[in-house]
Computed example of a mutant assay.
Amino acid sequence: MKTIRHCFSCDLKDDPKLIEEYKNYHAKGNARPEITQSIKDAGIVDMQIYLTGNRMFMIMDVDETFDPQKKAEMDAANPHVQEWEALMWKYQQGLPWAKEGEKWIALEKVFQL
């Protein structure tokens, strides 16, 4: 199976207590099964989030069934995802150049070995 990689960035609020809470929500074994299932159902085969300071980087590998528009529609229709996204806004904030309400911004690949 061929996968395509997408990379995104988002900031957390620069508050050590909130950052630790966010990390705890995402710690191994703490992920909500409804959320991880919605990720898999969208054709996402692997997702990793890395953190430095309060800036996060997400690496997302998707299969040929992934469609960002379809994922957005699925998320909008899923009350579990909507609840999760509302909760995560307690911790996340848009990048300084993000549009209003925009969280995860696609990264531009500038190098590959």
Rank of each mutant, 00 (worst) to 15 (best):
E85V: 08
R32Y: 00
D61A: 12
H26G: 02
I35T: 00
D15E: 01
V45I: 15
E100P: 11
R32M: 05
T3A: 13
N24H: 04
N78E: 06
P96E: 13
W104V: 11
P68F: 11
T36A: 03
G94M: 13
D11F: 03
N30Q: 00
Q92V: 10
P68H: 11
I59P: 02
K109N: 12
D63I: 11
R55G: 03
I105F: 13
E100D: 14
Q69W: 07
K17I: 09
H80M: 01
K28C: 02
E20W: 00
D61V: 08
E108Q: 14
S38R: 06
V62S: 09
D61K: 07
A27G: 04
S9F: 04
E85F: 09
E85P: 04
M58E: 13
G94V: 07
Q82D: 06
C10P: 02
K99I: 14
V110C: 08
G101I: 10
E73H: 04
R5V: 15
L12H: 01
R55K: 07
G43Q: 00
D46A: 14
D67P: 10
W104L: 07
A27W: 01
Q37A: 07
N54A: 13
I4W: 05
K99M: 13
E73V: 02
M88I: 07
M74S: 13
I35Q: 03
L51A: 05
A106L: 15
K2E: 13
Q92P: 01
W97K: 10
D15L: 00
K17E: 12
D46R: 14
E85G: 08
F8D: 07
E34T: 00
A76D: 03
R55T: 05
K70V: 15
W84H: 05
M74N: 15
D14V: 01
E73C: 01
G53A: 08
A76T: 00
D67H: 08
K90W: 10
T3V: 13
R55I: 05
V110F: 09
E85N: 12
T52F: 15
C7F: 02
A86K: 06
F111A: 15
H6P: 03
M56L: 15
K70Y: 10
I39G: 00
P68Q: 08
T65Y: 14
D11G: 01
Q37S: 08
L87P: 02
E100L: 09
Q112L: 10
R32Q: 09
A72V: 10
K13P: 03
Q48A: 15
A76V: 06
H80Q: 00
H26W: 02
D11R: 05
D46Y: 14
E34W: 00
K28T: 06
P68G: 08
H80G: 04
M60D: 12
Q69P: 04
T52C: 14
F66K: 04
Y22H: 02
K40P: 00
S38V: 00
K13C: 04
Q82P: 01
D63T: 10
F111V: 14
E100Q: 10
G94I: 06
Q93S: 08
K109Y: 11
M1T: 12
M74I: 09
V81A: 04
K70A: 15
A27L: 03
A27E: 03
F57W: 07
D14Q: 07
E21K: 01
E20C: 01
K109E: 15
L113A: 15
S38Q: 06
I59F: 14
Q82W: 05
A72M: 13
Q37C: 02
I105W: 15
D41Y: 04
E34Q: 07
G94F: 11
L107V: 12
D11E: 07
